[in-house]
Write a protein that binds this DNA or RNA. Structure first.
Lengths: 235, 235
DNA sequence: GAGCATTTGTCCGTATGTATT
DNA sequence: CAATACATACGGACAAATGCT
């Protein structure tokens, strides 16, 4: 009984012996192997997918998933690029938009701007192994950066740009939780179903004086990245 | 087209107008309402369930889910009991086991004990509105507490007990991530499918001297609790 | 570029089991 | 005990994306 659970168990063992990127047998093959319906086989694979163990691609097959560990700690720079590189994958980030726009009230407040103030907003999209994995926006405090400096292609260097402009950017406070990608983000991920994501917000201030410089808000796919947060109480 | 997505959208609107605990129409009613098969209706409800919007109970029906927000911050005591009470629900915690047992190597190390040392381990199970929602264990450092003090029924008072024994318990470091409940935990939750959970580890030390007192490891159901972690860099 | 086989995505219809009320 | 409602499984059909020829 419970043929789905049996298929799940069996496939789990198989996956443990495979490497990320390896293909698992087609649904048709699994039907004959387990003597089950396609519906049952699919249920089992859906369970594995919801555990982030496999990813499916229509027309291509089902493959063992690779997941990056990202540790966020007070004493460590939270570099997804480094974490990705360390695990042998390739990370790329593109700025897909820069604009001046009236900032939402909460963000304006954090950046010390008046409600409704027009601020510079960068939109970026990050890829891991050529798949979109993270998506987010950065809001710059008034006067933090000259707009002329923003013809950059990678956002990893944004703190570098801030530093070059005479500031001493340090992260002031971060907020991490999980959510489901809002429609405009899910669209970037070319997914329709609810995509479980990490929601990470960070306020960057000037180490000399504490003036707010930048507010960052990002959504990162949970099936591509596992975030671990370590924190200590401030005495 | 995409009848499942249509049902999801429609039910989302309905749910937004309902209160936690309210019942949504039966699958049979939804079949006639949308002119779809039960399979499609179930798919839609499964999507809502995976977003933690509803919970299903065989024989009873499908109900709008209630989720507690728990904010973990360096300057705040992470009290799930308080968060639950503040949202109008009832939290109860029971100690379901106390024993002396050889501690896992990593835990012994954190508590300053020799590898393989026998330590006191408490197992507890937490309920929200009479449903199991959190499950975990506490390991006590050697000499931190007299075993005779452990005939307590609620673990919320554990720091109180430590304090009464002359210590000044403070959280030293916490580690938060998401996972899927291991079998023995899922069993406590009376669930077979993979239950998405928060995995929270905390080391408690003595404020006077920094001696480790207790290591806590807990699994909390994501469909019952939403955790938000706020942290600041230590300069 | 066109055509084709493979593979996953979606939906329909039906039957039976099991927990709740 | 009976009715209700969710859980699980079977079987078939067509659509859509992929990868290869």
């Amino acid at each position: 009984m419970d043929i789905v659970a049996e298929i799940v168990r069996s496939l789990e063992e198989d996956i443990a012996r495979l490497a990320p990127g390896d293909r698992i047998p087609s649904e048709h093959d699994l039907m004959t192997r387990f003597g089950a319906t396609r519906a049952s086989v699919r249920r089992a694979i859906e369970v594995l997918e919801s555990r982030f163990l496999v990813r499916r691609s229509q027309g291509a097959g089902t493959f063992v998933n690779r997941r990056i560990d990202l540790v966020l700690a007070p004493d460590r720079a939270p570099s997804l690029h480094e974490a990705v590189a360390a695990s042998g994958s390739v990370a790329r980030t593109f700025v897909i938009g820069t604009e001046r726009r009236a900032a939402p009230e909460d963000i304006a407040a954090r950046l010390g701007a008046a409600a409704g103030a027009e601020l510079t907003r960068l939109t970026r999209l990050g890829y891991i192994d050529d798949d979109p994995a993270t998506c987010g926006e950065e809001w710059l405090a008034p006067g933090a950066l000259d707009v002329a400096d923003l013809h950059l292609k990678t956002v990893e260097s944004l703190t570098e740009v801030l530093r070059a402009s005479g500031a001493d950017p340090v992260r002031a406070r971060s907020r991490v939780s999980t959510a489901f990608a809002p429609p405009e983000v899910a669209e970037r991920f070319t997914a329709r179903d609810p995509v479980p994501v990490w929601h990470i917000e960070t306020l960057t201030t000037d180490g000399r004086g504490g003036r707010p410089l930048m507010f960052s808000r990002a959504w990162t796919r949970q099936d591509r990245v596992r975030v671990v947060v370590e924190y200590e109480p401030v005495p």
